[in-house]
Amino acid sequence: MSESIVQYYPRSRTRAIKAFLGQFLGHGGARLGLLCLVFFVAVAAVPTFLVGPLQTAINATGDFLMPPSGEHLLGTDEVGRDVLNLVVHGARISLVIALLATVISLVVGTTIGMTAGYYGGRVDVWLMRLTDFFFVMPSFVLALVITPVVLEVMGRGGEILGFRPSLFVIIVVIGMTSWAFVARIVRSQTLSLKERTFIDRARVVGSSNSSIMVRHILPNLVPQIAANGALVVAGAIYVETSLSFLGLGDPLQPSWGTLLSLAQRAGAASAGAWWYLAAPGVCVLSVSLSFVLIGNALDDTFNPRRRVIP
């Protein structure tokens, strides 16, 4: 590896991006995942335009638990709401929860991992001990006990930043319990980056520690963060769906998991109402799988060791 003379041409950056896109999109899985995600994001962007306002028991348009028909493409639920309407509105809630939780998790994980790796010594030991705890305990198990307590403290009324309190709590709890994986990867990457010459140069010109971390180390971490971020989203969707399924979601802003929970409580499975439980589940599966495929493709593209092996 010769990195003594690296000249910077803006052109080589566009070429690098092109090369990256070429390699990334060369994965069939990545194309499929992206296509699927674009579809769901588009649906989540304009749910009211597509299927009208979210139906409730009051403005429900159909009969109880009707199978799919021309009028209700995905059938109706136990109070006569159109399942398509619920699923489309659920897309926005599920995606927003998963993405915001991921943002929190990436910010926390990157900060802790980078700080631990950069400063080393005692800071590293203590931060990594904390990370170990969150690495060992699954986010779902932690969220299962933290979420109801926090909800009890905050109350379930009102809205926070446009979310019902239970959703807000779920976002924060998932974000704060799923960062350990990211922190570990970022730390090990930081450990190798800080030994490179360009960091020494930055220090010689008098850059402060924080400026070195933000301006020189962070940009080099982006590939790892992106590849793992996609997997964190998939994990967040899983945790959110499971928590909501156990009844910690909010019926007034139903995510896909909440819909599955409602279907379970209404006895949809034993009533044979397959459409009611199939629709939200297929959505969870598709979105989660898309993120896994994209994450794998990113990992493949960025991981030079893997590139050698066909």
Partner: peptide, 21 residues
């Protein structure tokens, strides 16, 4: 990969609908 991305409780619900109901 598809199974990995599927919540297992949802698989359970599908199994109930199919094999039980």
């Amino acid at each position: 990969l598809a199974l990995y991305s599927t919540p297992s409780f949802w698989l359970g619900m599908l199994l109930v609908v199919t094999f039980s109901t």
